[in-house]
Design a protein around this nucleic acid. Structure first.
Lengths: 132, 132
DNA sequence: GGCAGCTACATGCAAATTGCATATTGCGTG
DNA sequence: CACGCAATATGCAATTTGCATGTAGCTGCC
């Protein structure tokens, strides 16, 4: 009875997913067009947390549904066909917007580590904080 | 006929969740102890994407299960009891480790936008790019 | 007192995402 | 041919999340 249907997640180590995976893929595509297998390997070599290849392929499909990348089947080389992806203008805009949000996020983290208050984004208020 | 069971996600705007939410909470707790409601408001004022308060409370419970924060019921003030959270040593270590990964992630993104290749993390690839 | 409204935390449920295994097709090699 | 690799895709369960709602304590107001 090889019932392997009840798979448990080993959760061995943290994985890259969500918007961080998506934007990493967009960033790689900024440099040059690429296909999924290639992008999956670039991620492995990037020093970022690993991510499952199935997750990468699905992330690329979602990016295409969102209009941030476009793709076509490339059969010019030998081997199985590759789905070539390229970044769209909307994708590049999304990437830039995300990087702005990321900078703010990083300010929050490093500001907290340094023991300083991070100034509010647009509201000039909240001076009631008194640290000991 | 309040059958609102068929809820659709309006997906109005991006939300903060996952590890980015978790580490933002840890960062806030680095400065001073706080309780969930307060942290939820700090997030709203931080300029980061919004996040649902229920998600914040659940994130805090998970952080406690992971040993990154500890909590106790604070009934010293009026009003409903507050669950006070404080950062543990493990939580602070996790925060620092995460910030390192985040720096690498940011290198990937900004490096791609600048049109440069990001050097590999551990491979002895000799380029004229030196760490600054 | 009655009651609305705020603070503070919690949870139920469906939708969305993800981890892991597996399937598939094409090609090269012993 | 059998096998393995390249390249993409998908089935299914586990997990996470969005949104609504529920709880309890306190304050202000009439």
């Amino acid at each position: 009875m090889a019932e392997n249907t009840g798979r448990k997640r080993t959760t061995s180590e943290p994985r890259l997913h969500g918007e961080m995976l998506a934007t990493s893929l967009l960033a790689f595509l900024k440099g040059c067009n690429a296909y999924g297998y290639q992008l999956s390997q670039q991620l492995s070599d990037s020093g970022l947390p690993q991510s499952d290849s199935g997750t990468v392929y699905r992330a690329l499909r979602q990016l295409e549904n969102s209009g941030f990348v476009s793709s076509f089947w490339d059969t010019s080389d030998q081997g199985p066909a590759r789905r070539m992806y390229s970044l769209t203008a909307a994708g590049e805009l999304f990437l830039r917007t995300w990087i702005d949000a990321l900078n703010r996020y990083q300010e929050v983290l490093t500001g907290a580590l340094a023991g300083f208050d991070v100034p509010a984004a647009t509201e000039g208020e909240s001076t009631e904080e008194e640290v000991t």
